[in-house]
Every structure is written in C-alpha cells, then in structure tokens.
Nucleic acid binder design. Structure first.
Lengths: 112, 112
DNA sequence: TCGATATTTCGATATTTATCGAATAATAGG
DNA sequence: CCTATTATTCGATAAATATCGAAATATCGA
C-alpha cells in the first residue's frame, strides 16, 4: 500500500458521517447497506451521503453494487487491513514490542 | 475511545508530512525523535513541522518531552491501537470473520 | 549577560473540504 | 409510456486546513 492511498483512506475516514457510515458497513459485513438506508440512519441528506460514499469508494474502503434501484455499499476489509498494517509497519524498529502498551495491536486492541 | 477523538486522530494522520512523521516515530520507539530532526528528515520548514506535530499531539497520537533545547516526540501506541480497535469493532456483526479477506487484521495484515 | 541553538506562536494567504437544494440518470411497476 | 423510487452530479456558499516567514520563547555555553 502506498502513502497516497493511505492518505486518501485516512482522509476518507476522518469525517463524522463517513466514519459512522464505514463502521456500519464494517459491522454489516458482506451483504452491505444501501445508500438510502445509510442516509436515513445517519440523518444526512441523500446528496451529502452520496458525496461521502464517493469519497470512501475513491479511497478503496468500500465497494458498491447495484441491486435493483438501490446501490449497496460494502466495506473492503483488505484495504482496511492494509491501512492498519501501514501504520504499524516496522514498529519499535523491530524490538520486542510486546511490552506494556507496545505496538502489538492484536494483543492490546481491546483496551484503550 | 470516542468518535471525536478517533476523528481527530484520523485527521491528524491524513496528511503527507504528519503521516510520514508518525511512521518515523512509530519505528523509533520509546526514545523518540526531536522536532528539528523530523523537520530536516522530511524537508519541511520548522514552523510547518511544529504546526503538524501540534496536530498529532492534540490528537493524542504523540507525546512530547523537553530534553535540553530539543523537544522530543514519541508515538503513543495505546492511542494508535485504540484507533484501530475502533475501526474494526464488532466487525462482520460478530460472524466468523476469519475467512478469505475478512476483518481479522492480525492475520491478514501482511497482505494488501 | 550575550549570542547561538531549537522550537513554537502569530498572521496573512492559498487551497481544500463540507453542505445541501435543484437538476439529472437509472430502474421498476402499472 | 408515465410515474414513483433511488441515487448521483452540479453549482454555489461556508468552513476548515496547509503553508511558511517573521517574531517570540526557552535553553545552553562562554
């Protein structure tokens, strides 16, 4: 994953409505959620929601598919994980890293 | 971790120089890196670097300590991990989640 | 105390981003 | 084919962010 893509992904997530939408999609899993449903759940006008979803899609964080009149969005877990890997890459310069509050996400994620 | 703090953290990271600085700090570990060294490594004017470091600090992603004339910045791993936990929280609605390209960062992080 | 070093704060400007109504496109059903 | 539904694109405006030189602050050594 390149810095450019990472920045686009982080920018996409760094906004109230988009972060909320993305989390709903992460929790929804494969079947995804329609644009209109997201707009309603988040209480955002359809045109605004569309703008935000386009940003998430542009960042590669979500995919979209048409299903009748609706457009269904789903989270792309591979990109999300790539993002997290980029942040923690080579953390602590390769040293131990499993000590108190160190950089091993899989062990410390539950806290904080 | 609350949405507000997560958004501040994501906003802080969603910028070329700040992302680069944060990664250097993540890799540097506990001993950290001085503001001036970061400015030089990233080829950014000191006043700009200071502005960016303040954003990272405000987001809680880095801590700072004075050491003689220098101010040393270090990554805060707990906040970084809290951020990642927030994104993956309750992913896939609790279903399996370990399948092909699912949302288990610790297993899929190497790819993508 | 003076001068040099390291960093931050201030201020002005340029750029990017968010918002949302109105107009446009795509689909479905009668 | 006409109407209703679902979504996106367009356009104008408001708000937030990035940039960086100059001035201010803190520390050190002589």
């Amino acid at each position: 994953m390149h810095a450019d893509q990472v920045i686009r992904a982080l920018s996409a997530l760094a906004q109230e409505h988009r972060l909320a939408a993305f989390r709903l999609l992460v929790q929804a899993g494969e079947h995804g959620i329609a644009a209109g449903v997201l707009a309603e759940k988040l209480d955002v006008p359809p045109s605004s929601m569309s703008f935000h979803l386009a940003q998430l899609a542009n960042a590669g964080l979500v995919t979209q598919r048409r299903e009748s009149r609706s457009i269904i969005y789903s989270a792309d877990y591979a990109v999300m994980n790539g993002l997290m890997g980029y942040l923690t890459e080579n953390c602590c310069g390769g040293v131990s890293c499993s000590e108190d509050a160190a950089c091993l996400p899989s062990q410390t994620r539950k806290s904080a």
